[in-house]
Design a protein around this nucleic acid. Structure first.
Length: 229
DNA sequence: GCGACAG
DNA sequence: ATCTTGTCGC
């Protein structure tokens, strides 16, 4: 599986190859898909929420059996197929896919966002609440809202040491006493690290996670309740 | 052997 | 991710 990830990484494009801009996302000229999952025993509940100009345009989901356990570094093999099942029920093509998982911030530069984005050859971004690997260029605690810190490749990764593979982004910061952790943003496919971050910022949101991801998160919970849990 | 690890 | 009540703060 590691070998396959290296192939996927080789096919992935970590440069801008998109036909929209972050501003287009703000202006409602781009369709963004937020993707997340919840679990029901040995079944995955995959949720997709399509957002345009901050408004929900459509939702799609799929409940499928899981074939693999969770293994750090191999998340795409567990969640990839279930997510594809949900994406296939869409009747429109999103301009951008935003995943709840890493993109290039991955040992072999092949996180969930890279894996699925590359398969669909669609622009993709990975957003996580915890850092899988890589090293922040500067301390990430105590950042102010809007701050960003580059994440560089470390020796646990195949990318050349020091390569900027993503960013820690302080999307929210309420008070200074009880601090919130930043989110980690990385390109999955057809985006540079910097543009991926700009796209996430353009997605907006009132919470820590970008709006599309947050909405998919809640939709997944809603589905989970409906189907027992 | 020790450390470290998305969801 | 998931199991889970109350609770502190804006």
């Amino acid at each position: 599986m590691e070998a396959l990830q290296r192939e996927i990484a080789a096919a992935a494009v970590f440069e801008d190859a998109i036909d929209f801009t972050p501003d287009a996302i703000r202006d409602g000229e781009a369709l963004v898909a937020g993707i997340d999952q919840a679990f029901l025993g040995e079944r995955a509940v995959s949720a997709v929420v399509l957002v345009r100009g901050g408004e929900v345009v459509a939702r799609a989901h799929a409940i499928t059996p899981l074939s693999m356990p969770y293994v750090p570094g191999l998340l795409a093999f567990r969640e990839g197929e279930p997510i594809v099942a949900a994406l296939e029920t869409l009747d429109v093509e999103p301009d951008l896919l935003v995943f709840d998982g890493s993109g290039r911030i991955h040992y072999r530069e092949a996180g969930l966002a890279t894996h699925v984005g590359s398969c669909f050859d669609a622009p993709a971004i990975g957003v996580t609440k915890n850092l899988l690997c890589g090293r922040p260029r500067d301390p990430t605690d105590g950042l102010a809202e809007g701050d960003r810190v580059a994440i560089e490749a470390d020796d646990s990764m195949t990318a050349p040491d020091g390569t900027v593979v993503g960013y820690a982004y302080q999307s929210r910061q309420y008070s200074e006493s009880k601090r919130i952790n930043p989110v980690y943003v990385s390109s999955g496919h057809r985006l540079s690290a910097a543009t991926a971050l700009e796209c996430v910022i353009a997605c907006g949101g009132e919470y820590k996670l970008p709006r599309p991801t947050r909405l998919a998160d809640r939709y997944a919970d809603e589905l989970k309740r409906e189907h027992g849990g």
